[in-house]
Design a protein around this nucleic acid. Structure first.
Length: 269
DNA sequence: ATGTCTCGAATGTCGAGA
């Protein structure tokens, strides 16, 4: 079973590029981020024609996540628990039913967090975007703890908007004060990973220089000025199933690309 | 040194978000 994550930066602008990649890569399950569409406006037909079941959690203009699956999906839930007042569409879960085992999939679009606004004592300004990012990550940790406690195959994958370590950026210095790389962000990331998850790309592709995002600005792709911010965190029971993984970086160089590229894994499901 | 793209509201351009 091939599982992938892809921040598409707008479904309407990505119909051609996404369709081409699906036809070539042939993933069985894909989580999408930044669909930037309400559920009713999502072009589900182009995926259903290709044999995918489509589950969306959209909102107008911004954010929005989805799951495409050629395997049966069960128990679909929308929204990250822990804050009923949070109206941003950034989390969707479903159970993928395989021949041998089931896999809980959590597709996520973690808040960007910029601009970083801090009080004089260094605490994030309440109500600001950086405070929202860190609060969201605290809720993520709570959900992550429950997934681990279940001792079953589960994966949380998507656009984490986190550069975990220096080797995950071509030019770490220019990200030093950014919400994607600041110490508070990276500490919150480690607090989740260190609960006992396998970060599968780090584990299987440990060399530096594997990026998943290149900014549209300043010729970042041509200079390979990238960062690795799209990740997969697996419970031990899920990590045991992995047979291969990769990053489809090449599609960043095509016509009308997203600024992110797909990250994928093969699982003996 | 500079450099981009998407969406939506309001129009034929702009602000917000990333």
């Amino acid at each position: 079973m091939k599982l992938a994550t892809f921040n598409i930066n707008g479904i309407k602008a990505r119909i051609k590029a996404l369709g081409d990649w699906l036809d070539e890569a042939q993933p069985d399950v894909v989580v999408l981020q930044e669909i930037k569409s309400v559920d009713e406006g999502f072009p589900r037909e182009m995926f259903e024609e290709r044999g995918y079941q489509v589950e969306t959690h959209g909102q107008k203009s911004f954010n929005g996540v989805a799951i495409l699956s050629k395997l049966p999906l069960e128990d679909v839930t929308r929204g990250l628990p822990g804050d009923e007042s949070d109206e941003q569409a950034r989390w969707i879960e479903a159970t993928v039913v395989g021949d041998r085992t089931a896999l809980r999939i959590c597709g996520l679009y973690l808040p960007n967090g910029n601009p970083v606004e801090l009080e004089a004592d260094g605490t994030p300004v309440a109500g600001g975007k950086y405070a929202y990012k860190l609060a969201w990550m605290a809720r993520l940790k709570t959900r992550a703890e429950a997934l681990l406690a279940a001792e079953e195959p589960a994966v949380m994958l998507g656009d984490y908007n986190i550069i975990p370590q220096e080797e995950d950026a071509a030019n770490p210095e220019k990200w030093r004060e950014d919400a994607l790389f600041r110490p508070e962000s990276r500490a919150a990331w480690r607090a989740v990973v260190n609960l006992g998850f396998t970060e599968i790309i780090r584990t299987r592709m440990p060399a530096p220089g594997h990026y998943t995002f290149w900014d549209y600005q300043a010729g970042a792709w041509n200079k390979n000025d990238g960062i690795r911010i799209d990740h997969m965190l697996m419970t031990p029971q899920c990590a045991d199933l992995v047979t291969d993984c990769g990053i489809d970086a090449g599609i960043r160089g095509r016509e009308k690309p997203s600024d992110h590229v797909p990250v994928w894994v093969d699982l003996a499901l």
